[in-house]
Amino acid sequence: MTDTIGLVMIVAGLVFDVLGCLGLIRLPDVYNRLQASTKCVTLGTCSILIGTFFITGFTSTGFKALLAVFFLVLTSPVSAHAISRGAHKAGIKLWKGSTCDALEERNKEAQQ
């Protein structure tokens, strides 16, 4: 039973991985690519690791998988935020279809 749950979670993780990498190719802009790929691939990899824990149970492999999930959830949003902030400060333009740029407006307000 736990074997089946683990295999289903690994399949879901693979689907999320492929869709996240497809978004990295398909979308038009740095910020859109970051939005699609970072969230999708993090969720997919966490799902694969939790599936590993379900298959192996309370062994050393399972506990290492849970530790990897903890570190991944802790570090992945921080790196995504750092990349997007650095890209915005380096002056990379938004896509022409984007409607609002809140950080730019806030910088203008702070200058006045």
Binding site: D17, C21, T52, A68
Partner: peptide
């Protein structure tokens, strides 16, 4: 991040 998943499947 993908390499972490690859390592889990290899394990």
């Amino acid at each position: 991040i993908l390499v972490v998943g690859l390592c889990a499947i290899l394990a």
